[in-house]
Amino acid sequence: MSFPAYHATVPVQSSPLQSVSRASSHGRRPPILERNLVKGRSNEVSLSAYAFLFCEMLSYATKKSSGIQDMEKKLSDFGYRVGIRSLELLVFRDRPNRRDTRLLNTLSFIHTNVWKTLFGRAADSLEKGTDNEDEYMISDNEPNVTKFIAVPKDMNQLSCGAFIGGIVEAVLYGCGFPAKVSAHSTGSDQFPLRTTILMKFDKSVLLREKGFEPR
């Protein structure tokens, strides 16, 4: 690796990192910028801490927006910023020197790798839309993001999964597959919090995809 000082798991004796890690060795972890980029178990965040943060993000979005659509747009923008950054990190960690050019590979990368990194498990399903060629769906039966959130009856069109939608949109955009992404609550009795992310791909993506197919 090209930045040995930052990537060394055990700081070298003479490295300036040594003093930092000693100062923070009393049960405290090094600051996030000094941690190894390669994935480890210790990168997990408490779900409760996260839930409270998301809570505040939602209140902020509620306060700053005029209607439900506006609010979903805000949530999706929040997600976009997460997505574009996590893609960078994921590509570095999981698939260096490799880039998918096919749609299905990219979708399964999102369904599996992105989901596993962000939410600790793969999404529950990846389907192709039955009506339209350009639509794909990823569903999660119990998204971590909205695990504790019950949307009140007067706002029942709101889908807090818009945040996840934003993440997916950013990852797709970053991979070169621009798409319109929307999130829908598709709760059933068995999975009341089920959320479906609907991706409608840009024409250019489908045209390129056709070009890959053997004649």
Binding site: S48, A51, F52, F54, C55, E56, L58, S59, T62, F148, I149, A150, V151, P152, M155
Partner: peptide
Amino acid sequence: ADFVMKNPF
């Protein structure tokens, strides 16, 4: 704590 306090609504 889970379903009431972590609910933004």
